[in-house]
């Protein structure tokens, strides 16, 4: 069984947010819900100043705090390491969202579905088709595009990235590109001090 993970090459990320758009298109996430996004940081002071782009996503932690605090066991980890939320069990208490050190969870509200992506109160056919997978009042997060992964494809954000800054692969397979990059370029995990063992790594 593979153990899926992702590597972000910070040298390659140009902050175009194509991944963000691809994710929204693939998953039809409602207004203000971004399962992945790229934030920027200004570094240095004039005249020596630069801007770094940092892609963010659910880290699918091995010791996921969101799973630990969930009172209903709605958050669970699949055998392949993808952390999922069962929308039929979630009660929307928000404990997982507060426990996630990366703030990568979103609670869905009915207004988000009512007003639509254009905030006009009218849903596009795309939204009408896609919103059926969500339940208002529950919590959602990135699923590593599990349907695509199950079909042998890579997540939407990965195939869309124009600079190939996102690398998806089996972290247990020594010959996978993700694993090789982590080893060769000393990949590190975000907020590793929390011991959540994220399956997302960053390299520079």
């Amino acid at each position: 069984m593979p153990r899926w993970g992702m590597v972000f090459d910070l040298k390659r990320c140009i902050g175009c947010n194509a991944c963000t758009i691809a994710c929204k298109q693939e998953n039809t996430t409602p207004d203000r819900v971004l399962w992945t996004k790229t934030v920027s940081e200004e570094i240095g002071t004039y005249p020596n100043v630069t801007r770094a782009y940092i892609p963010l996503i659910c880290n699918h932690c091995e010791d996921a705090p969101c799973e630990r605090v969930c009172p209903t066991k709605a958050t669970y980890t699949r055998e392949d390491g993808i952390v999922m939320v069962d929308e039929n069990k979630c009660i929307g208490c928000g404990a997982c969202a507060t426990a996630c050190p990366y703030k990568n969870r979103y609670k869905l509200h009915q207004e988000q579905f009512d007003r639509g992506l254009y905030r006009s109160g009218q849903l596009t056919p795309f939204e009408k088709q896609g919103y059926g997978r969500f339940v208002a009042g529950t919590t959602v997060k990135c699923t590593f595009c599990h349907e695509r992964v199950d079909a042998g494809l890579e997540p939407a954000c990965v195939i869309t990235c124009p600079t190939e800054a996102r690398i998806f692969g089996d972290l247990d397979n020594p010959s996978s590109k993700a694993r090789r990059i982590i080893q060769a370029r000393k990949g590190y995990q975000p907020l590793a001090q929390h011991n959540t063992k994220p399956k997302v790594f960053y390299v520079e």
Partner: peptide
């Protein structure tokens, strides 16, 4: 709660 009727869970 977002889904109060499921609170028993």
């Amino acid at each position: 709660l977002g889904k109060p009727l499921r609170a028993w869970r």
